[in-house]
Design a protein around this nucleic acid. Structure first.
Length: 274
DNA sequence: AATGCATCCAACCGCTCCGAT
DNA sequence: TATCGGAGCGGTTGGATGCAT
């Protein structure tokens, strides 16, 4: 039967987003939410497909996004969850407030993967690499995969897990189990010995609901004009947008608080995210 | 200073999942 | 139950940037 493409290829703009497009998308979503991504570009006056709009919003424009490299604690959570969940980036991202699946995926592929390989850990199985080629007793020394240990070449150095730090990055700021989050250890036998199957942390992570999509800014219905101007939306000093959206900073004087946006944003950003 | 290589990351593509009919 | 369509996910790509020579 064949499916319709998510958008017409003809007349749909692709490639990097311009500041003007960002402006339109933010303006539209802040004032209307995103009931249906397919309809968003049309309603927002964008020559993009809905998919592209969703991606741009979720990966870059969302007000509650953190920017910058993952912290050691966040990295450790990623390693830990990856050991249990595999490449389910969205699930992992759901446990790291302000981080996107794309960001985590990129970070994994560019940083963590290499670190683990360098340490002799298979990034896929989280088992020692040389265990695959032989059962050499060379792996007798226990290696503990922690963010700290991955930071240097001292792979064999034993580090104490930073469970507190990990707890800090969890979705609601709570610390389900103070101990297990960073205990992904590769034991003598090469198997993951973090007891993930029974690990209360992992259990908790898998049970806790991810963000519901009911974030305040999604339902924001302030009187934002979508008339080509963006005068009502302002970026406070704590907003995470980087240089690509520096234009937002030009509107600081208007104040998000007037629109009720700051409250929504601050709630989100302070919800264990920092 | 110029060039080539390596790395990073935003964005796209195609697939799967899931709700509606 | 089968089909359709939209949303979301994970893999991949390619341009931009940084670094080494």
């Amino acid at each position: 039967m064949g499916r319709q493409p998510c958008c017409d290829k003809l007349g749909v703009k692709r490639g990097p987003w311009t500041a003007e497009e960002d402006r339109k998308l933010i303006s539209f979503i802040l004032s209307n939410g995103h009931c249906c991504w397919r309809a968003v570009p049309k309603l927002a006056g964008l020559l993009r497909c809905g998919k592209s709009c969703r991606l741009r919003w979720t990966n870059y424009l969302r007000p509650d996004l953190k920017r910058g490299l993952l912290t050691d604690a966040e990295e450790q959570v990623v390693i830990d969850l990856h050991a249990k969940l595999g490449n389910r980036w969205s699930k992992i991202a759901a446990k790291l407030p302000g981080r996107t699946d794309n960001e985590i995926k990129n970070h994994w592929n560019t940083h963590i993967k290499k670190k683990l390989i360098k340490m002799g850990i298979d990034p896929v199985t989280h088992e020692p690499l040389d265990r695959k080629t032989s059962n050499s007793p060379a792996t007798t020394s226990q290696s503990v995969v922690t963010a700290d240990s991955t930071k240097s070449d001292e792979a064999t150095k034993q580090q104490s897990p930073q469970s507190d730090a990990v707890g800090d990055v969890l979705a609601d700021g709570s610390s389900p189990t103070e101990s297990s989050a960073t205990n992904t250890t590769v034991s003598t036998g090469g198997s993951i010995s973090s007891s993930h199957d029974q690990d209360p942390l992992v259990k908790w992570l898998l049970e806790v609901d991810p963000p519901t999509g009911d974030e305040p800014w999604l339902n924001f219905t302030g009187s934002v004009e979508v008339d080509g101007e963006f005068s009502s939306i302002a970026a406070g000093p704590e907003l995470p947008w980087d240089g690509a959206t520096d234009w937002l900073l030009d509107y600081q004087d208007f104040g998000l608080g007037d629109l009720g946006l700051v409250d929504g944003y601050m709630i989100n950003s302070s919800n264990g995210a920092n």
